[in-house]
Design a protein around this nucleic acid. Structure first.
Lengths: 137, 137
DNA sequence: TTGCGTGCAAAGGTTTTGCATGGCA
DNA sequence: TGCCATGCAAAACCTTTGCACGCAA
């Protein structure tokens, strides 16, 4: 398994340099240009599957969309340990570090017998920035 | 707008009789048979769009799948008022009625400025039943 | 009769796969 | 040289759309 090819490097770099932005395959195809040449979508898909297995990126589908989005995981961050908030408006992903979450997770486990899977769970809503912008309208 | 045709009635009945189960379009095509005749997928899709607009069903995509799932909303239940838990193993959807959730939502709002959208948010994990089964293996 | 749902087929879009080629170790 | 990523094209899949027909009011 080789992970240091030019295409893989460029794609991973794009995603890891913008960890709070989500990319469609089309976005990646448009933004990653090597020597003036676009990367074929087949290669992009294969690369994304590879990185997802390595837990370097997350894949998810935004409700209402009909295609997948991919997002880089910040280096050294273990995304199975905290919650994620996703803004409906701007698409931003927020890695939430907050004490109360452990309480919440424990409550769900003890009172409802439900073991939350943090890697899959995404809390949708409206972030501060978008709320302010929306209020200004 | 007519909602009482045979096809619509049968599809809605299936979903509302199994509100903690999620159905793909294929599932519906396999299970709703009228006079020995399957309902064409085009009709199923159109019906599901219709019911989603009426807020009689929810649509969502399970991580790892590449197609949509649909789930009936229990009658008289306002799904924009409570959280939903979804079991990774059996697929069951649980409508969560619990006091702590309001606290949690308020905390997210006040401390993090994030207004959670309950209609989109799905908490994934393992339910009690599946945990017990898994432990027994 | 009129309107809207239905059925069938075709189209559209995303994602996957097969196979030959090419690059890195 | 050998292995694996790449490129291209085709296929597979899910979903939507167009159009003619049929059923219910």
């Amino acid at each position: 398994m080789r992970s240091n090819t030019k295409a893989r490097e460029a794609i991973l770099n794009l995603l890891q340099s913008n960890t709070n932005r989500q990319f469609t395959v089309e976005d990646i195809a448009n933004e990653v240009i090597l020597n003036g040449i676009r990367i074929p979508t087949a290669t992009i898909y294969r690369t994304l599957v590879f990185f997802e297995e390595q837990k370097l990126i997350n894949k998810f589908v935004v409700p209402g969309e009909n295609r997948a989005c991919y997002q880089g995981i910040p280096k050294g961050r273990d995304c199975s340990k905290h919650y994620h908030l996703k803004c409906n408006t701007c698409g931003k992903l927020i890695h939430l570090d907050c004490e109360i979450m452990a309480t919440f997770t424990t409550h769900m486990e003890n009172e409802h017998g439900f073991a939350i899977d943090l890697e899959r769970t995404l809390l949708y809503g409206i972030c501060v920035d978008c709320k302010i912008l929306g209020a200004g309208k």
